[in-house]
Design a protein around this nucleic acid. Structure first.
Lengths: 197, 197
DNA sequence: GTCTATAGCCTGATAGAC
DNA sequence: GTCTATCAGGCTATAGAC
């Protein structure tokens, strides 16, 4: 098999394992078994476990950028685009209730491990933050676009954590509905400038 | 040293390590070194790592109950008591920005490990949830007390995750202020019954 | 109740044949 | 580019002396 192809398979398997098991709990043997590769050959593609983590984060950044660009192409209004983000919670409800949010949980784990890649993982949040802020700015909220973006991120993270901990589908649905109503108020200009709650 | 005393020291050291490093990444050697004990003697007190986890969760449940009872003794109004909960984010800001929320991050980790203690760890959330719901009920919001409690929990989890990931003190302060304003509106009865956002 | 010694396994990582 | 064989070191856990 071509080296680039094997490498891609390794990164994709690692991506899944890191999300479902966590970075620390995933061994080379796990990933090698997924790809159908011997542990030894692993080091031809990656010299160390940290390098796989870097590659996984890079992959997630690429995938996220592609997803955000897709939303911009598909959805006509900023209101719709932000709605797409919020509705990930429902689209990915099953995996989120099982493993939490991939961005938030990786960030949490790397923080505890005091891992050098902690900052790189935070770039995923920053990507969403900038994109959301741009949408709010297009809605006319230029002054507090970043605050509103952080508020949406905060809301999604909180819902994901509680959904994974308590496993209540109604709660997720209810909070997404509340977020939709709040977004409608923002888009209609009937929400105050400060204290987005 | 008395066995009960050593046992208590082990659980307290494990509690700290599990929070700062994570459960998986903490070894018996780490905890033994903290207490000043040999690895071998460890098994006199705990037969397996999972037993320490059970003891740590039990300790956290006890500490949380004591904290909530303390708030009920100190704060006269339910509005004040809920405020105490929200302001943990500021009181513990340094550790939260370093390691996240102890409840949320443990819950996330055990979910990924598919650990049997996952449900026990969720009891910590349920403890807060019931207590908060009781406070909202005392504020007259009997109909949606549980929804409001979940909303407060969600908000705190989201802020903690983003604070740990991005490390911005202003964000924490701002979100706590927004939460305070929202609580004032709830206490004053000027907030609508549904869609708490 | 605490210790040392050790078993047995899995880990990340390397060397070298093919 | 993939393999097998192997290393050193850490892990959980046990056995037995004191």
């Amino acid at each position: 098999m071509a080296a680039t192809d094997t490498r891609r398979q390794i990164v994709e398997a690692a991506d899944r394992r890191f999300y479902e098991q966590g970075f620390e709990a995933t061994s080379f043997a796990d990933i090698a078994a997924d790809v159908g590769l011997s542990r030894g050959n692993f080091y031809y593609h990656f010299k160390a476990k940290d390098e796989i983590l870097d590659a996984v984060i890079a992959l997630r950044l690429d995938n996220t950028k592609a997803m955000l660009e897709g939303w911009e192409a598909e959805a006509a209004t900023p209101r719709e685009r932000i709605g797409r983000f919020v509705h990930i919670l429902i689209a990915n409800q099953t995996t989120i209730m099982a493993f939490g949010c991939p961005v938030g949980t990786l960030s949490n784990e790397l923080a505890k491990l005091d891992h050098v890649a902690r900052r790189d993982a935070a770039e995923l949040f920053i990507l969403f933050r900038r994109w959301l802020a741009r949408q709010f700015a297009e809605l006319g909220r230029t002054a507090d676009a970043d605050e509103l973006a952080m508020h949406v991120l905060m809301h999604s993270q909180g819902v994901a954590t509680l959904a994974a901990a308590l496993g209540e589908e109604d709660f997720v649905r209810r909070e997404v509905e509340a977020m939709d109503a709040w977004l409608d108020a923002i888009a209609a200009g009937t929400e105050p400038a400060s204290s987005p709650d």
